[in-house]
Design a protein around this nucleic acid. Structure first.
Lengths: 154, 154
DNA sequence: TCGATACATATATCAAACATACATCTTTTT
DNA sequence: AAAAAGATGTATGTTTGATATATGTATCGA
């Protein structure tokens, strides 16, 4: 049970951009920093742009940066969007929803429920949570919010 | 995010055997019923035997059957045992636990927590639950426990 | 306006992991 | 002894995800 590196990279890119604040980063730069394929990143960044996570700017002095606030992006949402196939077992994908052998099998329901728990947990983490463990108190004590007003960054 | 067909088949085989009660089934028979590879099943059944889920009997008139009670086998346990790699992302597997870029990244912790929720949920389902939705009340009202003592096996 | 830079997009190749097949051995029953 | 059934090791096939290549398009600045 693994996520694709695509999803993995999506998280990393967004975290990287989060650290950079409003400054532009280039794909080249990110690929070098993480030591991953630039070409692979190209596609990923494009998709992230289409989903509205990042703003991409072409041309000289171009690059990309987060288009949304750190606090507005959850890990759960990213995984739901990026992961190509969340159907855990084959009978999830088949047309007929009923198992041929076990007529009353509720395995699908159980797996679906477990998957919900999985994603719900990750819905509880925003990019801001990932990048600022020191400020993690804001998660435990929602009242005491110290995250800067918003997109103020650099 | 998918489970291997190995894990999928493991669940199916155990469910099949559960329906057959104490009767012996052969690998040949199970492979035919589900329309899956007999050779693949051979290995799987062997592993299931090593884990103590099934009793295998060689020779003529041999076969296999569950070695434990339906109620004593949970979906969560099977997945934990059968799934070869539960490390969701690459940095889970790398030697150094610290991300090179984001020194304080807590993504691993978040994913680990989510995975725990996933498996915990499946720990709540036994083979008996999967096969007898009609008796699902026993899950909703834990007070009214009718499951025999446990692990009594054959 | 030209050239450099950076993202956009399509296609092609590579590689790893998983699934399947094949062959042979061992055990058990008749 | 023969047949049935699991045990086990090796080899092959297949899928799909990762990477590479190539070309296009937009933007900036000299």
């Amino acid at each position: 049970m693994r996520l694709t590196t695509y999803t993995d990279y999506a998280l990393r890119v967004l975290m990287y951009l989060g650290l950079r604040g409003d400054e532009l980063s280039t794909i080249q730069e990110i690929a070098e920093q993480y030591g991953i394929s630039k070409n692979h990143l190209m596609k990923l960044v494009h998709v992230l742009g289409q989903f509205g996570y990042v703003e991409t700017i072409r041309g000289k002095n171009g690059g990309l940066r987060l288009a949304r606030r750190l606090e507005a992006i959850t890990v759960g949402e990213i995984i739901r969007r990026m992961e190509p196939d969340m159907a855990l077992v084959e009978c999830f994908r088949s047309a007929d929803t009923q198992c041929r052998i076990v007529k009353t099998c509720i395995l699908q329901g159980a797996l679906g429920e477990a998957l919900d728990r999985f994603l719900e947990t990750l819905d509880g983490y925003t990019l801001a949570d990932l990048l600022a463990p020191a400020e993690d108190l804001s998660r435990s004590f929602p009242v005491h919010i110290e995250h800067p007003p918003a997109n103020v960054a650099n």
